[in-house]
Design a protein around this nucleic acid. Sequence first.
DNA 1: TTTTTTTAATAAATTTCATTTATAATTTTT
DNA 2: AAAAATTATAAATGAAATTTATTAAAAAAA
Lengths: 311, 311
Amino acid sequence: MNIQQLEYLIAVDNFRHFAKAAEVCCVTQPTLSMMIQKMEDELGVKIFDRSKHPIEPTEIGKKIIEQARVSLLQLKQITEIVDNEKQIVKGSFILGIIPTIASYLVPEILARQQNQYSETELILRERTTTELISDIMKGVVDGGILAGPLNHPDIEEIPLYYEKFYAYVSPLDKLHQEKEIDLSLIDIHNVWLLENEHCLRGQIERLCKMKRVDSNIAVRYESGSIETLIHVVDYNPGITIIPEMHAMGLTEDQQEHLRPFKDITAVREVSLIVRKDYVRRTMLDIIKTLVKESVPKSMQDPKLKEYVVNL
Amino acid sequence: MNIQQLEYLIAVDNFRHFAKAAEVCCVTQPTLSMMIQKMEDELGVKIFDRSKHPIEPTEIGKKIIEQARVSLLQLKQITEIVDNEKQIVKGSFILGIIPTIASYLVPEILARQQNQYSETELILRERTTTELISDIMKGVVDGGILAGPLNHPDIEEIPLYYEKFYAYVSPLDKLHQEKEIDLSLIDIHNVWLLENEHCLRGQIERLCKMKRVDSNIAVRYESGSIETLIHVVDYNPGITIIPEMHAMGLTEDQQEHLRPFKDITAVREVSLIVRKDYVRRTMLDIIKTLVKESVPKSMQDPKLKEYVVNL
DNA sequence: TTTTTTTAATAAATTTCATTTATAATTTTT
DNA sequence: AAAAATTATAAATGAAATTTATTAAAAAAA
């Protein structure tokens, strides 16, 4: 067994097609056929079921492929360690970002990256928190930006900034006349929320110490984006809760509907996350700098940490 | 870069000598010289400092070697996955055991292994809890037996049995006339303890809710083995606390000095531990069976779990 | 059903690359 | 300074990956 063979294995699994995989590997099709067979002989098991069309891995084949991916990831880290040590920033960085952060951060950091670090390639992908953790552990993405803390044993979190929560109150709502919003006065029925997969929703539920019991409350509408929630609130009674970065982007008219909370400061901690064994630290420093430059200094005060709403 | 080269690299690091490493790898010395050079050229860094005698890895070399070990461990798991799936129990199993468990378990399980599973090779190594965790993570040992729970994120714990604690009271001590020992009456000065690196000592300190402040108490003697502690107590006033397995091996005379504790049952949980990604599960089942057969059924009641003294 | 196309396997030739043998260079020990 | 130990280098060898050419088998199309 050799590294090349493992790469062929992964290519065949990705394409489920020997000829296409061969092309990507820059070899001819018989090479793959022979090398995969050689692995199968050596291990004494069939890895692919060639009677299926397109071919698919056998049960044991799936396990072998999974472990081959892990092995190749670890092998790749050898060269990454060396490149990092040589301060060589090579290759692209795939960064996953959760939607409620992405919309404000992505344009900023993309522009800065083009100007200041155009020699690096930054690929941005929108992911939910769950997807992000999974992809980071698999090595499919290099790092992620999300609302922490996660406290995952194999993930390192690098706090970037702290984002205050604001109430966005409908002009049609009686709460609109208040200067500050008392959390205890918020009626569960009148809070417009994001869909369940958004972690921001969880934080808001936590902040309001409420958990909507969907079974007996008719949920009128749950949105996939904060923009939509704001539009809903503009024309319907009720409130929604939005993070600072979003508040900054509102029109002057909309700013009128923003209210701070009474007596409490609530923030979410936005962190850059990577696997603990991630080795491209020079690249990571660039990403970190990039994001921090894109965010007002006032939001980077570590003292804000104590107001973090956990999930 | 190929797997062979990585193996050469590890061999050279282990021996710090090209010729000796070559012999172990079953190749000639020039092969190693050339292959290590090839890796160095490919990575663009020197891995070994050949001006030192014996040669030693450079700073970056150390990192490369460390990652090479991780990679080889992951690669080895590919064949292990296949062997395990084929129900083939191949190769030896290196089992680390902490001293206070080893002395009673080792003879039993060795004998049983010889009789029932002589086709497997079981290698036993005595390790402290700290060493054991480190060696398991490095893959130097396959599994370990220790007192849990550990709650380590990357280690799986398989509870094996629960071992009661007993007081062993000196005939010269006034507590000797009591039928049961009241923990609150134990005088810190009169408890003979193991040396600090034994986790059993920590559990006993926890049980007695005491932490000897060494600075102002002259520690008369701390032993490396329970046997020695028992001998000390046989001829000196005071008590010591010993686990059930040990109590069973005492002479009839010594059994007279055994006392249960008043009102409480205290046990330690003995567990088999492996890395969470350990793949030789068939082998693991054999080890588990082996140990369980060596321990009285009465000690395997899961209900005993609630009396566990944590650390 | 038959033909055509797609896809993977096989055989022989070729090339690449690890390895060996023999030897040189360098450092350490005596 | 000579001998011994240790690593590096050069040319020859051999094993294994790869290619080209072809076959076999299965799926899709006619």
